[in-house]
């Protein structure tokens, strides 16, 4: 499934980042997010706004568009 398909507060493991734009992926790697990372969708802003994702206690904001290219697998 995709990161954007998670509900608020759900946790998942990232399985594929290859569809994400090159620069965005670089930034995600910089922030320690790569395949295998545990993330939690904290919230989605309205009107297709960005979403807040948490990884190892670090929150970050990414655009919905970019998040929709991230494939994840729900952990529970």
């Amino acid at each position: 499934m995709l990161l954007t398909q998670l509900n608020k507060g759900e946790r998942a493991t990232i399985i594929d980042l290859s569809l994400v734009n090159e620069s965005v992926r670089r930034r995600l790697l910089d922030l320690g997010i790569s395949e295998g990372s545990q993330v939690c969708l904290q919230c989605k802003l309205p009107f297709k706004g960005p979403c807040m994702v948490e990884n190892c206690g670090q929150s970050l904001g990414i655009r919905l568009q970019d998040a929709s290219y991230i494939k994840v697998e729900k952990t529970c």
């Binding site: 965005v24 995600l28 929150s59 970019d66």
Partner: peptide, 11 residues
């Protein structure tokens, strides 16, 4: 076309 946004949200 290209625009990107990834922001770190500090505590």
């Amino acid at each position: 076309e290209f625009s990107m946004f990834v922001v770190e949200l500090p505590p």
